[in-house]
Design a binder for these strands. Sequence first.
DNA 1: TTAAATTCCTGTAAGC
DNA 2: TGCTTACAGGAATTTA
Length: 277
Amino acid sequence: MPELPEVETVAADLRPHLVGRTVACCEVRFPTIVRHPEPERFAALLAGRRIEAVARRGKYILHHLDGPGEPTLLVVHLGMTGQWRCVPPGTPEPDHLHAVLVLDDGRQLRYRDPRRFGRLLLGTESELVAARKLPRLGPEPVDPAFTAADLYRRLHARRAPVKALLLDQLVVAGVGNIYADESCFRARVRPDRPANSLSRRAVGRLHEALAALLEEAITNRGSSVDSYRDAWGELGQEQEFLQVYGRGGEPCLRCGRPLAVVRLAGRTTVYCRRCQR
DNA sequence: TTAAATTCCTGTAAGC
DNA sequence: TGCTTACAGGAATTTA
């Protein structure tokens, strides 16, 4: 599942290869992947544009394109199984290939997505937000300006389970099921606790755990637990260090008791009943 | 306003 | 072996 560290890895890997390149042409194979504007217009508007910068916001990859005024963005969201890769000319085509951008050096940017939960967008940020194609996002959890006090302000008035709020992109951007479970475990916080029942101290632990975990996962190039691959098709390494995700029923690495599996906010949730209170 | 449920989608694995 | 079924989940949408 591409979450913040996985998306950061893809964006950082692609950046030096894409900045300064021009999109020669774009072919949309599966039109519903393009959510804005109309797929034909999307392809036409991309042709001839130069990529000025590659950034990440939450789970979105943002490609800044040349032009006057507010930057036009090519936005890529990988959903669950999306892959955004840069390949040399002549590379054999995989299945589930939904969009191809040919660059001026002949290489191809390919969007592949078996489950098609991902999407491509093109437009200025204000245009995409106004069209409700790009949601407003909460703060970046790896931004040093995002403090424990900020997280507490966002949690203390809400009754929803703390994990449900960690998954809410408006509360904090970029966290998905893997890092929500892992950060709760590291902070020794029960994921089903109503957020407003957490002390400042507990929220402080959660904030610290989340930031440290995400930085570690970025260093390890993300978690390849399902089909995630980086921009070169390689696996990440963070899955080797996950302590609860995918380990339901197995012994807690801290106390040895079997890890509990529950359904929370529509997601499989794994935690330790003894270590997380 | 908030929270929970529903929907999309297909590869994978379990069960018979 | 081959078929059916359940399950995985990000986020938009719907319902309460």
